[in-house]
Structure formats: C-alpha cells, structure tokens
Design a protein around this nucleic acid. Structure first.
Length: 500
RNA sequence: GGCGGCGUAGCCAAGUGGCUAAGGCAGAGGUCUGCAAAACCUUUAUUCGGCGGUUCGAGUCCGCCCGCCGCCUCCA
C-alpha cells in the first residue's frame, strides 16, 4: 500500500497516486528573502525534506521545487531602510538562507527557482487569465476576478460570503470586488519594474508560485506544501489563477504543516516572538533541533521551549551511544548469539514504515527507533562484556544499528557530532586555565583542546594512582563544569563533550 | 461573526471503535565504580477536560458545556 497523506483540499488522508507512476513532483513554498529564517521556517523546511526522503526511500523518484520570493513589499522596504537595493537584499538573504540550511544539515531542493527569473512565465499566465475573462486591467494593475472563478474557497473551506463578512482588508476601490487580488502591480517610482503589456510593474505574490510550479512540474502535478498560514489566501489564489488559466487541476495533494508557537502563541515576525535558526544552532545541535521538531506530528502545533530541545538532545544520546557501542565492538571467539535481535529489527522496520506511511507520523516512527534501540542495548547487556561479541552477535547487532541509522537518516538525523560550536570554544578556554593550574610545566607547550584534556587526565591518573582522590575528583569535577565529561572505565579514563 | 484544530501520566507526545493506552524527558529501584558521573536494564496512566448519547464494546463516533489555539491582513 502506498503512503498516505492528509490532503487539505479533501480533508482526508489519501494515498499517494502520482500522475506518472513512480515519480512525485512536489512544490514547496520557500521563503521571502528579506530576513533570517526562524524556527517556524525550519519546521516547514524539515518536514518537507523528510517527506522527500521518505518518498525516495519508498521507491519514488521525487522532484522537489522550492522557490525564493525575491521581490516583494518587505524586500523593497528593507532595501529602503538599509539604504541599499532590493536585489542586494534578496541576494544577501538567499546566501544567509543557504548558510543556515548547511548548518541545519538540510540539502537544497532539486530546483530552487527565484521569482524574478520567471517573470515571462508569469506574464504569459496573466495573459491567459485575461483572455479567459478571469482578470482585468485597471490603470496598469491586473487583478484576478475572484467571483468569475467558481471553485474559489474550496481549499480553505470558505464561502465567498464568509469572506466578505469577515473582510478586514482595506478596500482598494479600483478593484471591482474587494476579494479580487493583484496579479500584477504597476511600478511606483523607485521600485523594481519589469516591462509588461500593461506597463512597467512587478508580479503579485501568488502568481510566481503558479508560474514556477507549472514551469518545472507541469500544469498538473502531485503535491504542494507549505505552512498552514499559506492556505488562505496564498494557496487558494494559486489554485484559482492556475486552474482558471489552464482549465486543469493544479496540485492534487495539498500538505500543510502546523505552526511553531511560543507560549501558546504563533511564532511569527509580525508578533515579534521569533527565534532564528542561527541563534538556535548556536545552542543546540542540528540533530537535537530536528528531533525536537519531529517528536510532534507535523500538522499539530508545537510549542518551543529550550528545555524541550535539551530533552530531545538527551534522547538523541540514547541512539548515538548505542550506535557507537556497536561500532566499536570487538570480535572474540564466541558462539553465543543474543536471541531476539532479528525479530526486534523486523518489528522496527514494519512499525517505522507503517508510521511514516500514515500521514508521515514521525513521532510514532521515532518510537519504533527507540524501541529497537532498547532491544539492541538489552542484547549488548547479555554479552559477557559490553564491548566484546562473537561473530554472530556482532553481525546481528551491526545490522540492527544499520537499520537505526537508515531510519534516522530519513528523518534528517546524522547521529554525528552533536556539539554546538559555542560549547567547544567555552571548553577550550576552561581547559587552558585548568592546565596552567594542574600542569604548569607542560601547559605552555599544549595548544589544542584534545592535548590539554589528555594532559589533565594523565595528571589525574597519577593522582588516582597515589590515591589522592581529592585532586582526582577536583579535576574531574572542573572538567565537567567546562562541559567535558570524564568516565572511568576498566581500560582507562575517557572523555567527551557533554552533548546538546 | 464564519471556517479549522487542540485538551491523553510530573512534563512532552502517539494513538485511523475491540488483545495488557507507543515512545521520550524527569522520578524511583538495580548493574557497573575508590567514590562519582555517564551508560545500560527494570519501573511509572483501572485511565484519556466535563456531562450525556450511539454501540456487545469509545481516548477513538454524535450532542452539549468548559478551557486553549489558528486562519479570515504580510506570514513557513
């Protein structure tokens, strides 16, 4: 059975049924490049990347298009405020976006078109709407005639009368109807402008997505996604102008993710309660942030709180440490094979796929991963020593971890590193101070963090040998305060950064 | 006012009428240790906001009530 997704259009979960069997074309509304991305963007970007990866895992060839809106009122305003040009603002924030995505460890979409590179396609679409009587020109502006398009309101479950009753929009009296929206805006002095049959101007917001989606995916395509705030009016308008122009169904499946909130309130720039991806990645690893975001179903709201990301980070350690424990396994001659690994792996596979197939239920999929982790840990515990295994046991455990890694990878989790840059710098400074205190002789020669920690551990080992536990414990405690955990094992002491 | 959604253990959270209500965090007990820490294992909801109803059977369907949120304006 194919994966199912909740379709906003039909308000039901529906099976993926691509127009071209085996190939999925998806369009995701990207960002308007006038400011840094915040956690709300991160959630949407992550959810659709996970969808792309999961569909790919399930055997589909996926083409994901995600646009940059690189001309609009906010960009123009930002340029005026900062005394630069609109395209300088756009270029700047495209680069910032790419920087953030790299740090968040999300790859680019297959196509990342910019609105301003597709103005001719937009003009062509507007011409078609004019030819069909669905648009009209007023004084260099072009508007879509909402009441001439019968299906309007289908996506957002609204009737035209509801909209009129609730309309709080300031009415532009040049519009024939308050509901009509701009396809093309006549240029005002000093604004970016493109030539058009109706005079110089720039595209309205909605038309770019219609034009680019059709250009890269065809007039009809499989899946369109974004945050739920775009359902109305943006996606409603996209449908109206696209289907109005082509007479064909536009996107078949409309997928919308829920908001990130802060103390029960939507996180958005207009509310002013945003946390940028950049700031968050200074405090938390990409994996921790992703695990936090995927612990809640994508359609539900999720409340941001730093403690929750820290919790996610600790949960992540369960997976990482299991993977490490298995990967450093040493093989010894031993016929024993812990029972139940194969069935636990099979169960985890089935549960994971069932969960993800059912409207991308990442929270349930994660529980399958954690259950498998627990079974594999239990198997490790049955070994005579946790790091020594016979060939059969080692093979079974490695296979289990391979499944864990694959399932985590689909969720965007690398299971690597996990130490924010800020934490390393702070640790390095603290270690340098400790070196001067405990190893004054060698301190000047040691410049790197690893060397410093190792010198301190050697000094501590000496103290332990002399049963000077006061000194040994002091070093351990102060390293711990610096974010470096020391563990005494039979083979000697080891250390690592405290993860977050 | 119109439309949509949410309320499950100390916290987060899954749960598409039917075996003992996932999973994570925190807590408790245990293993390991010079002592720790970390790690691992075990354990933690007779009950799903309230009251009715449908059903052999409801957290899951219906109605009403209480509380919270979103969209209707730029917004992922």
């Amino acid at each position: 059975m194919p994966p199912r997704l909740y379709n906003t259009l039909t308000q039901r979960k529906e099976e993926i049924a691509p127009l071209v069997p085996g190939e999925v074309g998806m369009y995701v509304c990207g960002v308007t490049v006038y400011d840094l991305c915040h956690l709300g963007h991160a959630r949407s970007l992550l959810v659709f990347e996970v969808l792309r990866r999961y569909l790919t895992f399930r055997g589909y060839r996926v083409r994901m298009v995600r646009n940059f809106t690189d001309v609009d009122d906010k960009i123009i305003r930002r340029a005026q405020e900062t005394g630069t040009t609109w395209d300088a603002v756009a270029n700047h924030y495209v680069r910032e976006f790419q920087t953030d995505m790299a740090r968040f460890e999300l790859p680019p979409a297959d196509v990342e078109p910019r609105a301003t590179a597709h103005v001719p396609a937009m003009l062509a679409l507007i011409e078609r709407l004019l030819a069909r009587g669905l648009a009209y020109v007023v004084d260099g502006d072009v508007y879509f005639r909402v009441r001439a398009y019968p299906g309007y309101g289908r996506l957002s479950q609204r009737s035209l009368d509801d909209l009129r009753a609730g309309a709080r929009v300031e009415v532009d009296e040049r519009k024939a109807d308050p509901l009509d929206f701009a396809l093309w805006k006549r240029a005002k002095p000093g604004e970016p402008a493109w030539e058009s049959p109706w005079g110089p101007g720039r595209p309205g917001w909605h038309i770019e997505c219609s034009a680019m989606a059709m250009h890269y995916l065809g007039e009809s395509f499989d899946l369109h996604g974004a945050g739920e705030d775009l359902i109305f009016p943006h996606h409603e308008n996209e449908i109206a102008q696209s289907e109005g122009a082509t007479g064909k169904p536009f996107a078949r499946l409309w997928v919308h993710n829920g908001f990130v909130r802060l103390q029960q309130e939507k996180m958005s720039k207009s509310v002013g309660n945003v946390f940028t991806i950049r700031d968050l990645l200074g405090k938390f690893s990409a994996d921790a942030l992703k695990l936090f975001l995927l612990g809640t179903h994508y359609r539900s709201p999720i409340d941001y709180a730093p403690e929750k990301v820290e919790e996610a980070s600790r949960a992540l350690d369960r997976i990482r440490l299991l993977a490490e424990a298995v990967e450093v396994l040493e093989e010894v001659p031993d016929e024993a094979r812990p029972g139940g690994i194969a069935s636990a792996v099979a169960a985890a596979r089935a549960e994971y796929v069932a969960a993800m197939d059912d409207d991308l239920n990442t929270a349930l999929a994660l529980s399958a991963i954690f259950t498998l982790v627990r079974h594999l840990n239990a198997a490790l515990d049955t070994l005579p020593e946790r790091r020594l295994a016979g060939p059969a046991a080692a093979m079974a455990l490695r296979e289990g971890v391979a499944v864990v890694r694959e399932q985590a990878r689909i969720l965007g989790l690398s299971l690597e590193g996990g130490v924010p840059a800020g934490a390393k710098a702070a640790a390095a400074a603290a270690v340098e101070a400790l070196l001067r205190e405990y190893c004054p002789a060698s301190a000047p020669r040691i410049t790197d963090l690893t060397g410093g920690v190792e010198a301190l551990l050697a000094r501590r080992e000496q103290a332990r040998g002399e049963r000077d536990f006061a000194t040994a414990d002091a070093i351990r405690r102060r390293l711990n305060d610096a974010g470096i955990e020391v563990a005494d094992r039979p083979q000697g002491s080891t250390w690592r950064f405290r993860r977050s």
